[in-house]
Amino acid sequence: MHRVLVIEDDSMVGEMSMMHLSEEGYNVRRAVNGKEGLQLLTEFAPDLVIMDIVLPDINGKDLCKDFRRTSLVPILAVSMKTEVLDRIDALTAGADDYLCKPFSMRELTARVAAMIRRTEMNSAETMIKSDPVSVPAPLQGEGKDPVTLDYDRRSIFVNHTFVETTYSEFELMKLLVNNKEKVFSRDQLINTLRGIDSFVNDRSIDVHIANLRKKIEKDPKEPQFIKTVWGIGYKYVTNS
């Protein structure tokens, strides 16, 4: 049974969300503030988090960042804020999808099912790999790729150092690394995240890429790995 953590201070929305998700077969726990949410992240170990961006004790975007320091769990942000910039801010902070209030419980459960289904699909891909990538030995000399992906743990290492990424960032990086030198249009990258981020668009792709560059590039303003192909999209390059 999949575990879903709902962080929601609005009692009506919180209780309705729990009821409908429970009816769909999920094991659901609710936190009424950010502090309790952080505690349940450790104690409950959810497979997915539904997080209100406006909480009584902490800004939800800051809470997303706190979650991302210790966990890669998929996060569905919910909020009364409907502006595009609000959605982009949430994605930048570490959320994987965004749902505007008021929303139907049917849509909520559909979003949750889609995000969990995508997680399971990626786990299945890992299982069928004959030689999954593990934490590499330190790479020596030029001509070696310093960026390594560990599919089992959905982790990225740069020069043998672990780099924290969101679910969506890992998916993009996996696509780019597995197709070195191939140019991907923004539309192709958007399709990669369908089912994870329902609001994904050109702007949010650029945000994800900018975040990845900050995490893996020595100088994000002069990227060596994730290159922009002007007028088209992005590609991943190495000296290997």
Score class of each variant (00 low, 15 high):
Thr161Glu: 12
Val73Tyr: 00
Phe170Ile: 04
Pro102Lys: 06
Ile232Arg: 14
Arg117Gly: 10
Arg213Glu: 05
Lys215Arg: 10
Ala45Asp: 10
Leu40Gln: 06
Ser134Pro: 12
Ser185Met: 00
Met51Leu: 11
Ala210Asn: 09
Met121Ser: 12
Asn239Cys: 05
Met12Lys: 14
Asp131Glu: 13
Glu125Cys: 12
Asn27Lys: 15
Asp131Gly: 14
Asp197Lys: 08
Gln140Glu: 15
Asp187His: 04
Tyr151Met: 14
Ala113Arg: 15
Lys144Thr: 14
His160Ala: 13
Leu76Ser: 03
Ala77Gly: 00
Phe170Lys: 02
Met19Trp: 11
Ser22Val: 05
Asp152Ser: 15
Val32Leu: 07
Leu176Ile: 00
Met121Arg: 13
Arg203Asp: 15
Val147Met: 06
Asp47Thr: 01
Met16Asn: 10
Arg111Asp: 03
Lys214His: 10
Thr70Val: 13
Asp187Arg: 08
Leu41Ala: 02
Ile75Gln: 01
Ile209Met: 03
Arg30Lys: 03
Asp10Trp: 04
His2Val: 09
Leu149Glu: 04
Pro136Gln: 04
Ser198Val: 12
Val237Ile: 13
Lys227Gly: 03
Lys35Arg: 14
Glu125Ile: 12
Asp152Gln: 15
Ser104Tyr: 01
Ala110Phe: 07
Asp86Arg: 08
Val229Met: 04
Val229Thr: 06
Arg87Trp: 08
Leu193Asn: 08
Lys174Val: 08
Ser168Ile: 09
Leu212Gly: 02
Leu85Thr: 12
Asp47Pro: 00
Val237His: 06
Pro56His: 04
